[in-house]
Design a protein around this nucleic acid. Structure first.
Length: 425
RNA sequence: GUGGGUAUAGCUCAGCUGGUUAGAGCGCCAGAUUGUGGCUCUGGAGGUCAUGGGUUCGAGUCCCAUUAUCCACCCCA
């Protein structure tokens, strides 16, 4: 090994051909197909944004903004951040490009890299990929249900089992302010017994105390009032409609009154998708964010969205031994029996490729025997052999690599013999 | 950010309580008589045992540091 090999930065991954990229392509293709089905259109936003975008939208007290952002100064001294999530950039693009002038809702999806500066572990990387959806411009429980339905359909189409959809309502600003006070007065007498994190949450975002994983905190707040039980009547109706819509769509869900999402911009619906079994993890989540457009100085634009963590989806699929179809093999391998046949082989290869066949040849001056081995490794369906005899007689030898049958044919009969293409089958 | 595990050929690993030329399987390359694959057989290339110190007559094997990686926590996708 060379002394100074350069290695990839921590928490990043190379996705290699030969099984890996093919899985990614498969997942991305099914996502695109389903998104298109639901009439969502793709949006591609920059991978970096002005830091302020996330500070204002995601919330300065959140972990994402507080300690996980890849932030740096560019050459002109501006503070730039590699996007840690997709909703804020999409909302920015929506406002900046005046998409609000289109008929509502604006239904968008994205697939792309996100960046978070964290210690890597299984299913958590510094650069990771999300598939996300944002439906901007309407306040309708139908919309919320649709967004959940897309996520579920994608995961089910991919073959994932043991999904759990957790839903909750975080209320609107009106009921939330009232509720926060109720919650604080419940917690306050015992505040000293809570974990240090919760003590901080008490002032910054008391709702998240309900989400603490610490056993002691869980016990202390087991009887705490839940926002779900203190919604204003409008919010309650909205949540009831959502549940009804999910029932209509045959989507099973669990109402989880302790579910609080980590980002500040959520209102009303919040949901999370979990996988159970030996790989247990949240693989996606989302919710409604009716106030975000205004936080960015735009006109109100009630919206819902979600994001799926693609690495986690792949890990979950693997843990459930779901087979992902990986296309492999080529149609034709052109082999030469004599060096003199190389020019003819190059011509033939170009011809076959132009006709749409996946085709290859040897580039290392290998013996015919070695070429056959190579063709076998490439999983070629047919090998076409050209040597001096064939050149003289305008013939080709075509070998079917599956059956081992081999025949000599006229040069112009090749396409008839090799038939349909691999990628058309 | 906190705590723990691991670090030997491209890959998966072996190397017993420190002992002299570092091993296997897979993969790669080449051969097994005339222009032919998949099975089998033979041979070959490839490692300063993560890096830097230390203990010792002697270290892949023990100690320390660094780095990387994995796992868990926090948090999240």
């Amino acid at each position: 090994m060379a002394k100074e090999t350069i290695k990839k930065p921590r928490g990043t991954n190379d996705i290699l051909p030969g099984g890996e990229v093919e899985k990614w392509q498969y997942v991305e293709n099914t996502i695109r197909k389903i998104a298109a089905n639901y009439a969502y259109r793709e949006i591609r936003t920059p991978i970096f944004e002005h830091t302020e975008l996330f500070e204002r939208g995601v919330g300065e007290t959140t972990d994402i903004v507080g300690k996980e952002m890849y932030t740096f100064k560019d050459r002109s001294g501006r503070s730039i951040t590699l996007r840690p999530e997709g909703t804020a950039p999409v909302m920015r693009a929506y406002l900046e490009n005046s998409l609000f002038s289109l008929s509502k809702p604006i239904k968008l999806y994205y697939i792309g890299q996100m960046f978070r500066y964290e210690r890597a572990q299984s299913g958590r990387y510094r650069q990771f990929n999300q598939f996300g959806v944002e439906a901007i411009g309407v306040h309708s429980a139908d919309m919320d249900a649709e967004v959940i339905a897309i996520a579920v359909e994608v995961l089910e189409k991919l073959g994932l089992k043991n999904l759990e959809i957790h839903i909750n309502s975080l209320g609107c600003p009106k009921c939330r302010v009232e509720f926060k006070e109720k919650l604080k007065s419940y917690i306050k007498p015992n505040l000293d017994d809570y974990c240090p994190d919760c003590k901080e949450r008490f002032d910054k975002n008391p709702l998240r105390i309900m989400d603490c994983k610490n056993d002691k905190c869980k016990e202390l707040s087991s009887d705490a009032p839940a926002i779900l039980e203190h919604l204003c009547s409008e919010c309650e109706d909205f949540f009831d409609q959502l549940k009804q819509n999910l029932d209509v769509l045959n989507i099973n869900y669990i109402v989880d009154k302790n579910l609080v999402r980590g980002l500040d911009y959520y209102t009303h619906t919040a949901f999370e998708i979990m996988v159970c079994g030996n790989f247990k993890s949240a693989i996606g989540g989302g919710g409604r964010y009716n106030g975000l457009a205004e936080m960015y100085g735009g006109e109100p634009a009630p919206s819902v969205g979600f994001a799926l963590g693609l690495e986690r989806v792949l890990l979950a699929l693997e843990s459930q031994n779901v087979e992902i179809p990986v296309p492999e093999g080529i149609d034709v391998f052109v082999a030469t029996a004599d060096l003199g046949a190389n020019v003819e082989a190059v011509k033939l290869l170009a011809y076959v490729r132009q006709k749409g066949y996946k085709a290859d040849k040897d580039y290392a001056n290998r013996s015919l025997k070695a070429q056959m081995k190579y063709a076998n490794k490439l999983k070629a369906r047919y090998v076409v052999i050209i040597g001096e005899d064939e050149l003289k007689n305008n013939k080709l030898i075509v070998k079917n690599m599956q059956t081992g049958e081999q025949l000599e044919i006229d040069k112009n009969k090749l396409l008839e013999v090799i038939g349909g293409k691999l990628n058309e089958r």
